[in-house]
Amino acid sequence: MEHRSPVVRYLGTLLTYAAVVAGAVVMLVPFLWMVNASLMTPGEIQARPPVWFPAEPQFNTYARLVEVMPIFRLYGNSLFVAIATTVGVLFTSSLAGFAFAKYDFPGKNVLFVLILATMMVPFFVTLIPVFFIVRQLGWINTYQGLIVPGIISAYGIFLMRQFISTLPDELLDAARIDGASEPRIFYSILMPLVTPALATLGTFTFIASWNNFLWPLLIATDRDLHTLPLGLNALRTFAAEARNLDLLMAGTTLSVLPALILFIFLQRYFVKGIALTGVKG
């Protein structure tokens, strides 16, 4: 082992902490400033040099916000769309993943290659045609228009197939000998075993759907169907002037907060999921 004087080692540790803390401060300041500004008066926001904290927190900004931004409706829509999309993706992905991992059927390899191929297709390639299909179905300004095109995920099918492949066949065969039907094997043997993979795929799908902007922008022109990003976008155009910056920041705070809180609780699934799906190179 090399020998370093304690002074050098102490200095190294100090620099490490300095860099990590400085970075973390940069990451946090925008969020803190967002919350602070939402509680300031417009005068305080525009004061130069800047004031860091409101003299008196203006909680009534949030009361005023509710009048211009239907925040509870937005929460409800976002939550409903994200949950429905997630449940759909989990269901279709585990069904198809199960079939591809544990069954033999004519055409299986061709179909699986098809799924791998669609995995490489970015969303913008299908955007216009899918919009057209959804419009032909009469699904503009409907929840199914927001949800149904998102409930199939080639990536999700692939991920579930990979995970299910690692489960031993003996478990399924044992259930068959006991007389279980194939659907029954799916929901009472397989589903409990794949919960870790479902948790990972589910959290990713939920967040992606929750944050999605472009698709709802095309489908939900009616304010009653707006999701959070759409509501924030509407607030952005409404509250563009300086005197409404407090409202804009209050709206931003309310749209950002749920995902952040959810993340803090579910972060181990994210970190595990990224390690699982990310480092395969």
Partner: peptide, 22 residues
């Protein structure tokens, strides 16, 4: 530290755009 650095990844790009516009 990991959570702090990861927070913006979870945030809607639209919300970050509004925040950074400010």
């Amino acid at each position: 530290w990991r959570v702090l650095y990861f927070l913006p990844v979870m945030t809607a790009p639209l919300a970050l755009a509004v925040l950074f516009g400010f």
